[in-house]
Design a protein around this nucleic acid. Structure first.
Lengths: 339, 339
DNA sequence: ATGAAAGCGCTAACAA
DNA sequence: TTGTTAGCGCTTTCAT
C-alpha cells in the first residue's frame, strides 16, 4: 500500500480512504489513485485490519458434517448472502465430537470472527462459553433459547411433522413409526417430540415400540430399518429425522425386497436435492436453504456491533413435498422378506 | 500476549519461544509461562503472524461445487491431513463461473495462503497467473502439466474407464455410450478421451452418436438420458463422467419405466457414498478421497518454502466397484417407454 | 537463557 | 482535502 501511495504521490491514508470510501477525497485524486491501484494490481491484506481491530469480517459456521448434502446446499446460499456484505465464511465441522467442537470454537476465536452460527446441536453449553466470554455474537439453530448476545433460528418441526403425519393419516395409515437422530442431541429430542405431538393432534396413537434411533446418516436409517423388519409388528409408514435417514431406510427396504411405497411409506425431512433422484423420489418436508440462510444472516447481523442485547428469535417454516414414497397402506398382514 | 508476559514476569519474546518451541527456554520458566497461558486462556492471533511474514499456514482449495458429494468427502480427508500440520483450509467454490474463479484467486491472495489446490478444471490459464506472479505454490488436478512452482495430481481415468468398459464388454455389451461433462472443460476432454481409448483397447467401436454431454450434476445425466431415449438407436450400457451424472441418468430411466440393469447398464465414476444407497446400488469406479487428499498434500508440501522448482507429478488410481447397475444386455430390440 | 526492539499493513484520530 | 502517526500482536535478530 505504501508503494501505491508513493507511486500516486499521496499518503497511505488517502489510499485507504479511496479503498474504503471512508473519508473525503477529491475525485481527481481518487481517480488517479484508482488507476495506480489497478496498475500495481494491489491486493489488500486483511490481516492488518484484523490485527488492528480484532475483527475479521468473517462469520464462522459450525456444522456437524459436510457430507450431509443439506449443509452444502445451505452454505452455498449462506455464503452468497455474506458476499453481498463483503463478509467471509469460516467453516468448521465437528463430526459429532466434543473435542473437535472445542477446537472449532478455538479457531473461531483465533480468527476473530464477528459471529458464529452453531448448527451442530449436540453441543454442551459449557463448550460455547468461551465465545460468550469473548463477546462474540452467537446464533444457534434450534436451541430455542436466546439471551444477551445470542439469537436463535428455530425450524418449525412441529408444523413440518404435522404436515407429514396428516398426509399419511389421510392416506389411511394408522401405524406410523419414527426414525430419529442420536439420543442426547438436542434437536433429536425436538424432532421426536414434534412427531409425537403431531400424532396426538391427528388422533393417532404413538407407540413406543415404533420409535427408533438413527444418526442423521444413511447408515442409521438403514440399520434402524433392519431392526424394524426383524420385529413381529411394524408400522405401515415411517417418518424420519432427515432425508439421509430416509434414504438409508429405503435402502434396507429395497434390500429386503419390500415395495416402496405400497408396502411401506416413507417421509424424509430437509428436502435435499438428491431426494428427488431416488427411486422412488423421496416424499419429504423441505426446509428452504435460502430462507434459513436469510434468517441466520439477519440474526447475526442484528447482533453485530451491539452485543448487549438479546438476540433475535426467528423461525423458519417447512413445506411438504409430495413425491413417490408415500401411498395408502396395503393389507395389514405381516410383511415378508421377498428376497 | 503482553499480558501473559507481564503476569509471568518475562518478556513477550520468551512467551513466543514457549509457544512455538522456537528457542532455548529454561524448563522452569517454560512451565511457569504455560501455567499463566492456561490461566489466562490465551488465544493467539494468527493475523499478526500473517501480517509479519506474509504467510498464513493455510492452503486454499478451489472446487467447482460443494454440492457434489465427492468434494465434501474429499475435503474431509484433506482437512484431517492439514490439521496434523497445524494448517488451515480455505475453501472457495466457482460454480463454474469464470468471474467467481477470479474472485476466488483474489481471496487466496488476500489471505496469503501458502498454496492453492485447484480442483476446478474449467479454468483459463490466464486466471491463475496472479498466483504465479505472487509465487504461490499451485497444485492442479488433472491439468497434466507441471512447471516451476506448479505440481499436478492426475487421476488415472485411462485405467478407470478401461476397467469399466472391460467389465461391460465381458458382460456382452457391444454398444456402449458415454455421458460426459460440459465441453470446454479440460477434464471433460480427458475423461471422454479415456473412454474412447478404452473402447479401442477392448476392440469395440466407439460411435459418435453415443456420446452425450452432461454437466457433472444430476440434471445433466437426466437430460442426456432423455435425449438418448428419444433417439431411434441407443446403446445397451452407459458410462458416465461422474456419479451424479449416473444418478441423473438412472432417474430418467426409472421415469421411463426402463429396468436397470436389465434393459440398460450404468457405470458411474467417483465412488460417492450415496451411490451405494441408490436403487439399484450404483456400479462405479471409485477414487479414494483419502489417497487423493494424501497426494494433494504431498504435492503442496513439496513446494512449500521452495517454489523454485518444478512441482511433483503424482497419479492416483481408481478401483472398480461392482454393484447393481450392470448386467448382461437384453435382446437387441428397441427399448420402449413402458409408462 | 532472556530481553529489547523493529516492522509487517492498515486505519482513525488528529494536525495542517 | 490531505498528511502524519500510533498501535494492533507476533517473531526474530541482536544484545546482554
Amino acid at each position: 500500500m505504501r508503494t501505491v501511495a508513493q507511486r500516486a504521490g499521496v499518503s497511505s491514508a488517502t489510499v485507504s480512504r479511496v479503498l474504503n470510501g471512508s473519508g473525503p477525497v477529491k475525485e481527481e485524486t481518487a481517480k488517479h489513485v484508482r488507476r495506480i491501484l489497478e496498475e500495481l494490481n494491489f491486493i489488500p491484506n486483511p490481516s492488518a485490519t484484523t490485527l488492528k481491530y480484532g475483527r475479521s469480517n468473517t462469520y464462522g459456521v459450525i456444522i456437524p458434517d459436510l457430507t450431509n448434502p443439506f449443509f452444502p446446499e445451505f452454505l452455498h446460499r449462506f455464503e452468497d448472502l455474506l458476499v453481498e456484505n463483503d463478509f467471509e465464511l469460516l467453516i468448521a465441522t465437528t463430526q459429532s465430537s466434543q473435542a473437535k467442537f472445542v477446537r472449532s470454537i478455538r479457531r473461531m476465536l483465533m480468527r476473530r470472527v464477528d459471529g458464529v452460527l452453531i448448527m451442530a446441536s449436540e453441543i454442551a453449553t459449557r463448550a460455547i462459553e468461551p465465545l460468550f466470554d469473548h463477546r462474540i455474537p452467537i446464533v444457534t439453530i434450534d436451541r430455542r433459547h436466546v439471551q444477551e448476545g445470542t439469537g436463535d433460528v428455530a425450524i418449525h418441526f412441529e408444523d413440518a411433522y404435522l404436515q407429514a403425519v396428516e398426509h399419511l393419516s389421510r392416506l389411511g395409515h394408522k401405524q406410523i413409526g419414527f426414525i430419529g437422530g442420536e439420543r442426547g442431541i438436542r434437536t433429536s429430542r425436538v424432532r421426536q417430540r414434534a412427531f409425537e405431538r403431531a400424532m396426538q393432534i391427528v388422533g393417532l396413537e404413538c407407540q413406543k415400540e415404533f420409535l427408533w434411533e438413527g444418526n442423521y446418516r444413511v447408515s442409521g436409517g438403514d440399520e434402524a430399518m433392519r431392526v424394524m423388519l426383524k420385529a413381529t409388528r411394524h408400522p405401515t409408514a415411517i417418518v424420519t429425522a432427515n432425508d439421509l435417514t430416509a434414504i438409508g431406510a429405503m435402502r434396507a427396504l429395497h434390500a429386503a425386497g419390500i415395495n416402496i411405497p405400497n408396502e411401506m411409506s416413507i417421509v424424509g425431512f430437509d428436502g435435499i436435492e438428491l431426494g428427488d433422484a431416488m427411486h422412488p423420489p423421496l416424499t419429504t418436508v423441505a426446509v428452504s436453504p435460502n430462507e434459513l440462510a436469510r434468517a441466520c444472516v439477519r440474526a447475526l447481523d442484528h447482533l453485530k456491533g451491539s452485543i448487549n442485547k438479546r438476540g433475535m428469535r426467528l423461525s423458519v417454516g417447512c413445506s411438504f413435498v409430495q413425491r413417490g414414497t408415500t401411498a395408502p397402506p396395503r393389507s395389514p398382514k405381516r410383511l415378508q422378506y421377498h428376497k
